[in-house]
């Protein structure tokens, strides 16, 4: 289990995350949502061990990053950055195989095959990554993260660059990954996708967690209105919820000045 207790993150002298506690459990998909600037990416980066925390503790199966060591941490969690890039035009399968680096060599093994099959990129395995469309590239980067086969997967806006078909595909895939025993944390902006696919939602605003729980309990009109400054239309199709942001409030939601 990936657990943050009372963490604060300081960026450039500003507290961008304040006293936040969160747990990602194996087999569960946690959606991290909130307006721009709420601190979602900062939380994810701290969970991934990329940025130091100013206060609190983060543990991975009960141990801190220092206790685990950088190398083992690379196998313990997979991190999919926002707007990830592939800087050299490697063949698709070799990009996916980079996910095996924490396990030794970056060779095309069974885990790489599983990851490519999951995102339906196996037919393009020899294609240069430089020739892929934006959506294909996003799926390739997800496959690279899946290939780590880590107990925890942290994905920062994994569907941001995708068309509706592939948004649904990626969300189904993330949920299936969670069902297979991985603790999945995904930063999301689409409230319907968050409501439909996440087991729990953590709603952030101004660096704080303002609500956490099952989607139906967190994504209420009041809370969404408070966080985002919009009214929402809600409903159900086939027993599954949808939430549409419908109208902006007359004025933007109060945003606290960050504390130094």
């Amino acid at each position: 289990m990936l657990e943050a207790r009372h963490i604060s993150v300081n960026r450039g002298g500003t507290l961008v995350v304040r006293d936040l506690s969160l747990a990602a459990r194996p087999g569960e998909m946690l959606g991290l949502i909130g307006p721009n600037g709420a601190g979602k990416t900062s939380v994810l980066r701290a969970l991934a061990g990329l940025d130091p925390i100013a206060a609190g503790t983060i543990t991975y199966g009960g141990r801190t990053a220092d206790e685990i060591g950088r190398r083992v941490l690379g196998r313990t969690l997979a991190y999919l950055p926002q707007n990830g890039r592939i800087h050299w035009p490697l063949p698709v399968e070799e990009v996916v195989a980079l996910g095996r680096l924490p396990h030794g060599a970056a060779s095309v093994d069974d885990a790489v095959e599983r990851a490519m099959d999951a995102v339906e990129l196996a037919p393009l395995r020899r294609r240069s990554a430089g020739t892929l469309s934006g959506g294909e590239r996003a799926r390739l980067l997800l496959a690279r993260a899946l290939a780590v086969e880590a107990p925890a997967l942290l994905a920062d806006e994994p569907v941001a660059a995708l068309d509706p078909y592939h948004q649904l595909q990626v969300m189904e895939l993330l949920r299936a990954t969670a069902r297979a025993g991985t603790a999945v944390v995904a930063v999301l902006h689409d409230l319907t996708l968050a409501a439909r696919f996440c087991d729990r939602i953590a709603l952030m605003k101004d660096g704080r967690l303002i609500a956490e729980g099952p989607p139906a309990a967190v994504l209420t009109a009041d809370r969404v209105g408070e966080a985002y400054g919009v009214t929402v239309e809600r409903g159900e199709i086939g027993g599954e919820p949808f939430i549409l942001p419908w109208r902006r409030h007359d004025r933007a939601p109060d945003r606290k000045e960050p504390e130094a």
Binding site: A78, I86, L98
Partner: peptide, 14 residues
């Protein structure tokens, strides 16, 4: 090799 994916991804790979 890992830096092909950028600094954050490379750091997350250990």
């Amino acid at each position: 090799d890992a830096l092909t994916l950028g600094e954050d991804a490379a750091a997350s790979l250990g």
